[in-house]
Amino acid sequence: MQISERLEALLVPAGEHMAVAALQRYFAPLPAGGFTGAYFERLGGGGDRPDVADTFTSDDIVAVSMLSVTVPASAVLQLLEARGPELGGLLAKIPTDVALAEITADEVGGAWPVRDVYRELLAIPGIGETTATKLLARKRPHLVPILDAVVTAELSVVKGRYWVPLHAWLTADECAGHRRLEELRSAAGLGSEVSVLRVFDVLAWMVGSGYVPEN
């Protein structure tokens, strides 16, 4: 993963006004402006609220559609019915109250419980990397970042290797990256329901999609 010059320009103090403008544009209420993705984490009270945190629900399916993803009907039945209990058991091993920057580099390795759910999601026909990360981000928004084609291109992600390098960037220099994203979230007037990972994701996506003019 490489922070592009265009994205870096939003993350440094001198570019804060551009970053705030991009975030406010993305999360502006519809229909006056904004994007449907602004409702991804908020729909139905969130996918990580206690009563549904360990279960994929129909709200989660609708939420990922806010991010331009359509889950095939056969895959929906696997998520909600056939494989629901199995996936729920795996989700139960992943905390909801821990941020990615709060765990160690070793914890993000091969034994990370998030990877078990990720592999099981990919095993469902019709669910690829983008859909799997969006479903996981819905259930554990503070732990799992979204990875789609735009973010992959903007950050030069190689073969899906994203979680470890992103964790390294967030935690470097006493979590400077994490703290900077918190500052931008606050400056944009967003609540804590929008994770710092989503702040990063939205900024990378807005830059990669051409919504942020180059200065």
Rank of each mutant, 00 (worst) to 15 (best):
L100Y: 08
T96W: 00
V71S: 01
V76E: 14
E86R: 12
G89S: 04
L91Q: 02
L87V: 02
L87Q: 02
I103F: 04
V76R: 13
K93M: 10
S74R: 12
A73D: 13
L79Y: 07
L79F: 03
D97H: 07
K93R: 13
T104W: 05
V98R: 11
P72A: 06
L87P: 02
L87K: 03
A92T: 09
E102C: 05
A105R: 12
P85A: 08
L100Q: 03
L100P: 06
A99F: 08
E102K: 08
L87I: 03
G89P: 05
A75V: 04
L90I: 04
T96R: 13
L77K: 14
A92D: 02
L100K: 07
A73Y: 12
P85N: 08
T70Y: 11
E86N: 06
A99I: 07
T104L: 10
D106F: 09
T70I: 13
P95I: 02
P95Q: 00
V98P: 01
L91V: 02
D106A: 15
G84W: 04
A82I: 13
L79A: 00
A82R: 15
L77E: 15
Q78N: 13
S74W: 08
L91K: 01
A105M: 09
G89H: 04
A105H: 11
T104Y: 09
L77H: 15
A99Q: 14
L100C: 05
D97L: 00
A75C: 08
T104E: 05
D97G: 05
V98G: 02
A73E: 14
Q78A: 12
V71T: 06
A105K: 11
K93D: 11
A75K: 06
E86Y: 10
